[in-house]
């Protein structure tokens, strides 16, 4: 395992957490929550991109996590931490079955099945009266004592998981995943069980998405089927792409930028979609490698000039 840049990670996480301790304004706190959760979803989406697949079912697994955590809290009255982990486990368990079936397909097929699965699951929630139907599930509160510290807690959980996914990416397992992306057949000739590796990658990402869903449920206290439409995955993809996909920092940068922009766009009322859509189009047209790609190129050019 090569250099993990641990000091950077520790520093950035500590700084971000410090910010959440300082921020006492409830509106800013809600934005911080949005960013933490969206960043985790984006990183989860990117993790499956390591095997070269676009996982649109991310939205469905986030929803499954949210509903599982919500049901554990409101129906079963489980403690907070257990409910949260339960959300992740349910998402991962279902993703193993789903992945085992669908990961035999590739590319656009896998993308579009994920899309169909997301919509089907969403309709299933709305049919289930136990889960609150279309009105959604209410009263998913974290313990009272946590109320003030939710932004810190959510960010800490998200940071731990993002770091874990980063470590996995840099490990031998991560190298197998990218090998599958680059050439599945070569990877197979080495004697690897490709499907198993893919399902493992998928399940890990889904666990993270499920936890993100649970955090979402506890942050908002209310969830509804409409929260987990395919747009969740579409936005996560936009975060990844705008930030830059070849590096785990990319999705984080993209998330912070676009979520902040989105909160601003909310004030535009009906024009919100125009603004947000235009921002995404311009970003993919003008920044093919994302913001981090642009920054890296700028940095390299600067370094080259210094070298002379």
């Amino acid at each position: 395992m090569d250099n993990l840049r641990l000091p950077y990670w520790a520093l950035c996480t500590a700084l971000a957490l410090a910010v959440t301790f300082v921020v006492r304004d409830p509106y800013l706190a809600s934005i911080v929550n949005l960013i933490s959760i969206a960043a985790l979803v984006a990183v989860s989406l990117r993790f499956v991109m390591l095997i070269g697949e676009l996982n649109f079912a991310t939205a469905a697994f986030m929803g499954l996590g949210a509903y599982a955590a919500g049901a554990a809290t409101t129906i079963l009255h489980w403690p907070f931490a257990l409910a949260l982990v339960f959300g992740g486990v349910v998402a991962a368990a279902i993703s193993i079955v789903f992945g085992y079936i669908t990961l035999r397909t590739r590319g656009p097929y896998f993308l579009l099945i994920g899309f169909a699965f997301t919509e089907a699951v969403r309709i299933l929630y709305s049919k289930s009266m136990a889960l609150g139907g279309t009105s959604g599930m209410v009263g998913i509160f974290p313990p009272v004592g946590f109320d003030a510290w939710m932004p810190s807690l959510i960010m800490a959980v998200a940071a731990v998981l993002i770091f874990a996914l980063y470590v996995l990416e840099r490990s031998d397992f991560g190298k197998i995943l990218t090998a599958i992306r680059d050439n599945e057949n070569v990877a197979r000739t080495v004697g690897l069980n490709i499907l198993l590796c893919k399902v493992a990658c998928f399940a890990i990402a889904s666990f993270a998405a499920g936890i993100a869903g649970g955090l979402h449920a506890f942050a908002n206290n209310v969830i509804s089927p409409g929260d987990f439409s395919f747009l969740v995955a579409a936005f996560a993809l936009a975060y990844v792409k705008v930030g830059g996909e070849d590096n785990i920092v990319g999705p984080l940068v993209g998330t912070i930028l676009l979520v902040t922009l989105g909160s601003f766009a909310l004030g535009l009322g009906g024009q919100e979609h125009i603004f947000y859509g235009a921002a995404i189009i311009l970003a993919v047209l003008l920044l093919p490698d994302g913001i981090t790609g642009l920054a890296r190129r700028g940095y390299q050019r600067l370094a080259a000039r210094k070298g002379h």
Partner: peptide, 16 residues
């Protein structure tokens, strides 16, 4: 503000 008919956006609107 636009709540897009779902709880997640409704929460954003409420916060705002």
């Amino acid at each position: 503000y636009d709540n897009k008919y779902n709880a997640a956006e409704g929460t954003k609107v409420a916060q705002t």
